[in-house]
Amino acid sequence: MPYATLAELKLRYGADRMSDLTDRDGDGIGDDPQIAQALADASDEIDGYLAARYQLPLPTVPSLLVRIACDIAVYRLLSLRRMGDIEDARRRYEDARRLLESLAKGTVALGLPASLPDAAQPQPSLAAAAVGAARTFSRSGTEGY
């Protein structure tokens, strides 16, 4: 599920900035498919974190995830350019990644409405189940004691 659209990305960062980042042939027109791919990659990265805690797809897309998706997409687009352009994008990407880690741990909430029916509420996925070491003591291992 995409967490941000091309229109949302252009609204947040500006259409001119998106054209500057993706204009490979110098005609002043951005490469919308390249932007769409960066947004898809950002959504995949977000899903990787959220799947540890939430059942996907989410019933709604919180605005927090729209911002995170946009920041990750711009970082991905900037990573294709020369190194000097990436410093601010790297900081935003690292902030977005730390926020996703906090969402996965449950220390930050998505703020999904509490009025969703129980069936639509996000549920922890099986990926969130903890797997520990094998038991030291068991019935078969303590027979005769």
Rank of each mutant, 00 (worst) to 15 (best):
I86Q: 10
E87L: 14
D88W: 04
A89C: 02
A89W: 00
A89I: 03
R90C: 02
R91Q: 12
Y93S: 04
Y93D: 02
D95S: 10
D95N: 12
A96F: 11
A96G: 08
R97A: 06
R98V: 11
R98Q: 15
L99C: 09
L99Y: 08
L100Q: 04
E101K: 09
S102W: 07
S102R: 12
S102K: 13
A104P: 01
K105N: 13
T107E: 12
V108A: 09
A109T: 12
A109Y: 07
A109H: 05
A114S: 14
A114M: 12
S115P: 01
L116F: 10
L116T: 11
P117K: 14
P117T: 14
D118H: 01
D118W: 06
D118A: 15
D118Q: 10
A119C: 04
A119F: 12
A119N: 11
A120Q: 10
Q121Y: 01
P122I: 02
P122G: 06
P124R: 08
P124S: 04
S125I: 00
A127L: 15
A127T: 01
A127S: 14
A128W: 01
A128D: 01
A130E: 12
A130H: 10
G132F: 13
G132P: 03
A133Y: 04
A133H: 02
A134G: 08
R135N: 08
R135V: 07
F137Q: 06
F137G: 01
